[in-house]
Amino acid sequence: MLKVGDKLPEFEGTNQDGEIISSSNLMGKKLIIFFYPQASTPTCTVEACNLSDNYSKLTKEGFQLLGISGDGIKKQKNFHSKFAFPYDLIADEKHDVIEKFGVWQEKKTFGKTYMGIVRTTFIFDENGICSRVIEKVTSKTAAEQILEG
């Protein structure tokens, strides 16, 4: 998994509107990238809505936001539209970006082992250097976790 001090990996991803988002275009501002397992699931919705509800606080602190999951563009579009998120969601079906950040890992639920996205938030400075990794994201207070850092 990417850690504090690491540089923002180079990537291109497709957002909910089919537009290409490139990591090189995200430099110059502080950046929050949050990875979530699946669009429109209860816990992921709580996290994404908490970040949306606190968007003005986050941008006031100089942050830009980007959410990423392994969902397809259509599912991301529906999720984005339903909740009117003020930030982009990347559809990473091939797990290219997910793998670069190291959040595709073995998980266990109810004794069952499987591969999946580990809910993680990465914070980068204006130069694209990782300044913080939040591995134990609390969905209901995701923005507060970021701001208290």
Rank of each mutant, 00 (worst) to 15 (best):
C44S: 10
M115V: 06
K140V: 11
L65C: 06
T113R: 03
T121M: 03
L66G: 05
Q145Y: 12
K100C: 10
K136M: 13
P86C: 07
G111K: 03
R132K: 15
K57N: 13
K112W: 06
I134R: 08
A142K: 01
F79M: 04
K74V: 07
Q76T: 02
Q145M: 06
I98H: 08
T138K: 14
Q76Y: 05
F122H: 01
V97L: 13
F101E: 00
Q145L: 10
K77S: 05
S52N: 10
S131V: 07
G62C: 03
V118Q: 12
C44W: 15
T109L: 15
S69R: 00
D88V: 00
K136G: 03
K75A: 14
K82I: 10
F85I: 00
K107E: 15
T138S: 04
K112E: 05
N50C: 07
F101D: 01
S56T: 11
I98C: 08
C49E: 12
T113E: 15
R132H: 14
S139W: 10
Y55E: 08
F101V: 01
F124K: 00
C44R: 05
D71H: 06
E99V: 03
S52G: 11
N50R: 08
I68L: 06
E106M: 11
V103Q: 05
M115S: 02
G116H: 12
G111Q: 10
T45A: 08
G102H: 12
F63H: 02
F79T: 02
D71F: 09
K112T: 09
L66M: 01
A48C: 03
S56K: 13
T120Y: 11
G67F: 09
T59K: 03
N78F: 07
T138W: 11
D125W: 02
G70Q: 03
S131T: 11
A143Y: 12
M115G: 04
I129D: 01
D53K: 13
A84N: 13
T121Q: 00
L66E: 06
Q64Y: 01
I117L: 04
F83C: 08
S139P: 15
M115R: 04
K107I: 13
K112A: 08
L58Q: 05
V133R: 02
A84H: 14
V137I: 06
F101S: 05
T109E: 14
T121N: 00
S52L: 04
T138Q: 14
V118A: 13
M115A: 01
G72A: 07
G67R: 03
D53P: 09
I123S: 04
N78M: 06
I68C: 07
L66P: 01
G116K: 07
L51D: 05
C130E: 02
Q76A: 09
V133A: 05
V137L: 09
V46E: 14
V103Y: 12
A48D: 12
F101C: 01
S56V: 11
E126T: 07
K77P: 06
K60F: 13
F83A: 06
T141L: 11
I98R: 09
F110T: 10
S69G: 01
K108I: 14
F122P: 00
T121V: 00
H95L: 15
N127W: 03
K74N: 14
I117D: 03
K77G: 01
Y87E: 00
